[in-house]
Amino acid sequence: MEKKAKYFGYSITRDRQIDYDANNHDICKIIAKAEPTLNLCISCGTCAATCTAGQFTDFSLRQVILLLRRGETKSLENEVSKCMLCGKCQLVCPRNVSTRNLVIQIGKALYDKKLSAETVNTK
């Protein structure tokens, strides 16, 4: 007999904590290989300060890099799509992170991941 979940007028709150051990770090490894300057980021925020998209949305490349590094893939997917690839951030980065390529590589890795998931599903 299938039992039904009871509703008591409240629900379980989602845990905000980043569970580093449970998160998947494959995408970060792929990106670090494809664009090694990823590792040079010092989270100074110059990229986000100059970003056109960041003036009108809560987009921040600094946060995108951190989400990638912590394995927060779901939030990463939402965030990275906001970039318009103008490349302004690359001009201002003090550590010469190749930010534009980073965004392209993240998009590519996420797309590949989706594609492989679909392939598995259709098999």
């Binding site: 905000r16 904590q17 980043i18 569970d19 051990d21 946060q63 951190l66 989400l67 912590r70």
Partner: peptide, 12 residues
């Protein structure tokens, strides 16, 4: 806390 992401973090 990952203060730059504004979230608590747990790691082993």
């Amino acid at each position: 806390e990952d203060t730059l992401l504004g979230k608590p973090l747990r790691i082993k």
